[in-house]
């Protein structure tokens, strides 16, 4: 094929690559600054507004984070909740999406309309809090998982994907004596690996970054997730204002520590991407041309 590649197409390829490289740089440079800052001394951070390499290299910020068990504990909690929560979310989303992909299912349109309705219409933070409370989920890890178990947005996309699966395979399995549940678990799910990978990533990142749920539902600080720790360390913004109000000489966390916490809280979930990336390559197609 390369034989036929014309000169102008080559130029196009090069331009395309350059633009993308520029885009990649623009997105990583601030993150490199955060990483560099996490290894810099406090006076360097105060004196130099922006740099990509610290003049004086120090791991003091990381030593500080690791000096108490707060960071490691909340990291463990977060990993646990994320792994388990993602499994629950995937299971609930996929089991609900599959029947909804069958156009002949009674009540399907009504349910879909009601699902879409919840995307724009919510009871709000406080009524949701009351429901979670009345179910006895306060101070339980379930509170971080169940209230967000199915994203209507993702549900619709997964449902559309199932709609695209060739019906013939499923019919054949049914003829072989499989029930619909058997078809779902033996035929449909194995076919859905790329979609599972994509939504595993979406859900996992959602739980990982969730900050409001632990704030509202978890009072026991030993059960807090990483994001609570990140928030507490990085949002010193309002701190010095309030410093005038309280009497305590509370020193806001150093900037280097803030950066280190961001890096330490981002890297674990970032690592997930390359692992899932190879699954995306197999592709999914969503949305159906109306038949």
């Amino acid at each position: 094929m390369s034989v036929h590649t014309s000169r102008s197409e080559k130029a196009l390829d090069v331009t395309n690559a350059l633009v993308l490289i520029a885009l990649g740089l623009v997105t990583v440079v601030p993150f490199i600054f955060v990483i560099a800052g996490s290894f810099a001394t406090e006076s360097e951070l105060t004196a130099r507004p922006f740099f990509l390499w610290p003049e004086q290299f120090t791991t003091a910020s990381y030593d500080f984070i690791l000096s108490t068990d707060t960071f490691l504990r909340s990291l463990l909690v977060t990993v646990g909740v994320t792994v388990f929560g993602t499994l629950v979310q995937l299971l609930l989303t996929f089991t609900m999406a599959y029947p909804l992909s069958k156009r002949y299912l009674p009540g399907r349109t009504l349910i879909l309309n009601l699902v879409v309705f919840t995307m724009v219409f919510t009871g709000g933070m406080i009524p949701t809090f009351l429901v979670v409370k009345s179910m006895g989920l306060l101070d339980s890890y379930w509170a971080l998982i169940l209230p967000l178990a199915i994203s209507p947005f993702y549900l619709i996309i997964v449902k559309n994907f199932f709609q695209e699966l060739p019906e013939e395979l499923q019919q054949a399995a049914k003829v072989d004596g499989c029930s619909e549940i058997g078809v779902f678990f033996r035929i449909v799910l194995p076919l859905s690996k790329p979609v599972l990978a994509t939504f595993a990533l979406f859900y996992a990142v959602g739980i990982w970054n969730d900050f409001m749920s632990p704030l509202l539902y978890i009072n026991d600080s030993s059960m807090w997730t990483l994001q609570m720790f990140v928030r507490q360390v990085t949002s010193s913004a309002s701190l010095s204002n309030t410093l005038g109000q309280t009497n305590l000489d509370i020193v806001p966390p150093e900037q280097g520590v803030q950066f280190a916490v961001i890096v330490a809280a981002t890297l674990p979930i970032l690592i997930l991407y390359p692992f899932l990336q190879k699954h995306f390559a197999k592709g999914i197609l969503i949305g159906a041309v109306k038949g």
Binding site: F129, L215, R231, Q232, S238
Partner: peptide, 12 residues
């Protein structure tokens, strides 16, 4: 309650 979000927590 983390100071940065005490107002949200109090309101809820």
């Amino acid at each position: 309650v983390p100071n940065s979000n005490y107002a949200d927590k109090v309101a809820t």
